[in-house]
């Protein structure tokens, strides 16, 4: 009997399903036509809860940042007092003729750091970032600082070059910057050392 056509039998269930279809259309339109979520009271409550939590999380983040700063300050003053502190920075100016891979830093003939640069760090250096390569302590007086740069020069040639400087450490903090620059005339990199303070 079920395969027999009957208009009465057909009409009522069909109309219910059709209502589902029109409801779908309306709901789809609502979701597509609104860049914002408008799903009833539950959603509103959830949004309100999100805001409450978000405000608390913001406060927490701010306080953790402040604590982090205070801890960094404590760490620096405790471990690297100004009277003995020396910081060595590294920067890359343009860097067309040299792609940095690593730097070895020696102070008074002793290796204090050997740093390998990631692609991401290299990109940050090329955009103007400056890397604090070393933070340590030195007694007052003269010290020899030697840096060896390893990387690729023009035409993918391996490159290793050193630069040195004698620094006079006094009672103030000493900031030294190792700069990698392009030497246009020779199409080669050059390494410059700058004493900031």
């Amino acid at each position: 009997m079920l395969n027999q056509r009957d208009s009465h039998c057909r009409t009522r269930p069909l109309s219910n399903v059709w209502r589902i279809g029109t409801l779908t259309i309306a709901l789809t339109l609502l979701s597509l036509f609104s860049p914002f979520s408008v799903r009833a009271a539950d959603q509103a409550a959830a949004t309100s809860q999100f805001k409450t939590l978000d405000t608390k999380i913001q406060d927490l983040k701010q306080e953790v940042l402040e604590l982090n700063r205070d801890l960094f300050v404590l760490e620096e003053e405790l471990l690297f007092p100004a009277s003995t502190q020396i910081a060595v920075f590294l920067s890359v100016d343009t860097g067309t003729f040299f792609s940095l891979e690593s730097v070895e830093l020696k102070i008074d003939n002793k290796t204090v750091t050997h740093y390998l640069y990631t692609e991401r760090e290299n990109a940050a250096l090329h955009r103007g970032g400056v890397h604090r390569l070393y933070l340590g302590n030195l007694r007052t007086g003269k010290h020899e600082l030697v840096a060896f740069f390893t990387g690729k020069g023009t035409h993918e040639r391996d490159y290793r070059l050193g630069t040195s400087l004698v620094v006079e450490k006094d009672a103030d903090t000493k900031f030294i910057e190792l700069k990698i620059r392009d030497k246009q005339q020779k199409l080669q990199p050059e390494f410059e050392v700058k004493v900031w303070k």
Partner: peptide
Amino acid sequence: GEVLFYFYQ
């Protein structure tokens, strides 16, 4: 510059 180094990453 050091701040920028981390910011750019």
